[in-house]
Design a protein around this nucleic acid. Sequence first.
DNA 1: CTGAAAGCGCTTACAG
DNA 2: CTGAAAGCGCTTACAG
Lengths: 360, 360
Amino acid sequence: MDRRIPVDDRTGHRIVPETIRRSESRYGNRPTMKDVAARAGVGLKTVSRVVNGEPGVTPETERRVQEAIEALGFRRNDSARVLRKGRTASIGLVLEDLADPFYGPLSRAVEEVARAHGALLINGSSAEDPDREQELALALCARRVDGLVVIPAGDDHRYLEPEIKAGVATVFVDRPAGKIDADVVLSDNFGGARDGVAHLIAHGHRRIGFIGDMPRIHTAAERLRGYRAAMEDADIPVRDSWTSLGVTDPARVRPAAEAMLSGPEPVTAIFAGNNRVTVTVIRVLAEQNRRVAFVGFDDLELADLLQPGVTVVAQDAAAIGRTAAERLFGQLDGNLVTPERIELPTRLITRGSGELPPAD
Amino acid sequence: MDRRIPVDDRTGHRIVPETIRRSESRYGNRPTMKDVAARAGVGLKTVSRVVNGEPGVTPETERRVQEAIEALGFRRNDSARVLRKGRTASIGLVLEDLADPFYGPLSRAVEEVARAHGALLINGSSAEDPDREQELALALCARRVDGLVVIPAGDDHRYLEPEIKAGVATVFVDRPAGKIDADVVLSDNFGGARDGVAHLIAHGHRRIGFIGDMPRIHTAAERLRGYRAAMEDADIPVRDSWTSLGVTDPARVRPAAEAMLSGPEPVTAIFAGNNRVTVTVIRVLAEQNRRVAFVGFDDLELADLLQPGVTVVAQDAAAIGRTAAERLFGQLDGNLVTPERIELPTRLITRGSGELPPAD
DNA sequence: CTGAAAGCGCTTACAG
DNA sequence: CTGAAAGCGCTTACAG
């Protein structure tokens, strides 16, 4: 490679110095309304009127103020404004991991609703750690966000009670709040999993494996319950070796899948509890020399292009985010006083992998 | 399906009323330090000392203050604190679309660095609209974020000059700032595309198509330049019909790909300028009855499981985000006064599609 | 060890 | 149409 540009030895990054950034000192020298007022030769309140587009200012006065604003490079300090006004026009979103493809569209949907209401969105990842969730949520409350959308990592949210009492709108997503009453928006996890497993049963399978997330996570428990319900509906007793719950790390999921697929009576189909599990299970299945049927919870990009296409139980992440955010602003508008549980339907998308017959 | 739960007619959501949310009025009744001071029978400053863990308070006094804090459910208002202190301990990230799988990991990486510096992250999507980028960036400045990471949609960023002068740390990502000097962190788009196309040439291809994003987008232009350079290095004249730039919508990309693949001398290989284009091109290629080689810019989950596996030029989105954020806090610490351009290397990952020989 | 006063940059309520 | 005063909830600088 041609490398005429200097390279940082440690990182391997190319570094191209450019011109000097700025001459002024860094902080504390922003012009304020007071400065603008002095320069324009008017009172503070007149500047405030111009900045906020309030009526009652002569065109001539307005012009003088505008000139001063331009000349000084004034921009209103919304932090100060907010302190006086009460509402901050910002909401917080505490999720598990912004890098997870499920949360991107969800977060974007929340952002769009916030934007429509003139609010900004502060994002934070809990990394599935209850302490970190609490720390984040309370930090957001300290910043006085108007509302909070929380995808819970923990199962005790009493720490939010004083905040909710004090008026912080709160909506939980994906899993209900623990030990407090609060709005929650989630998918029909139980029904979705039950339908997905019933689909496998309808295609002739009886030995069906379930690999899911840690059982303390609400969605994981609900989906397992759906699996069990479908099996029971078909009078199929579930063997212990067919279910495996735990972290969704490939290092755990891979051996779990391999174990189910070996032995004298291997499973002929696998149901995956979420998209992280799906990715690893599909890798394992690709290495098998017989066809194993598969259905996964959550859709994946490119799922239709694999061979066979991946049959999934899809959630609508954007709809979940949108619904939660609208609920949040509904609370802020004061017309939603009773916490509700809003369950969104899932959708079974058949693409081939879930329609394979049992291998034996 | 069993539906014993009432369902909203319009949305189809299940609705489960729960208990009453709260009795108090919504706003303006949060306890302040003044309230705590009154209740504890101490001065305001003493409460401030306890809340901030400053020394010089008797254990007995501290206990009284803590009791008052508990009883009142006091939480310090960080908005007020920030007004007085200068820094807000928050940074803004303006990106194209949080729902795009490239930005999730990038955003998460920025968040982690911010967290390590005790700062919160405010996210906003420009939707690739320059006006919206500006609106968002300035709104963040009005909130007095300490710094701004911007993935530019527009090509003129002079609107940020007063903010940068006033001390807002600023780092651009993925594309350089327009008409101002500022830090920028990006991938080696030119080199990556050149390497990817050279890889196809090395496997015997001469008629190679390039489908990219709108030419006004820096990365798109750079990658096209890389394509042209590789072709020129191999003495292959590029025909107009082999390149196609525009929006990455399937409605445009699909016919563009189909056109290149038809006619008397169709291309035998396609290079895709980004992950959005890749997804559509792969769909088109799957419908062809001859094998067409393919290399795409940006990696995709499951790319290794397609048949053939998808060869890509991968960027490290997390490394880009991390580098940009560290640069930002470097500026805030005052030890980075000269804007730099930091280019991160890309990585060619061969998986099969890029190693197919020409079909004819 | 403790606290009264002033101020961060705005808006509110009011008076001219 | 215009502006001086008070206050949002904290911290800073200072005095006791």
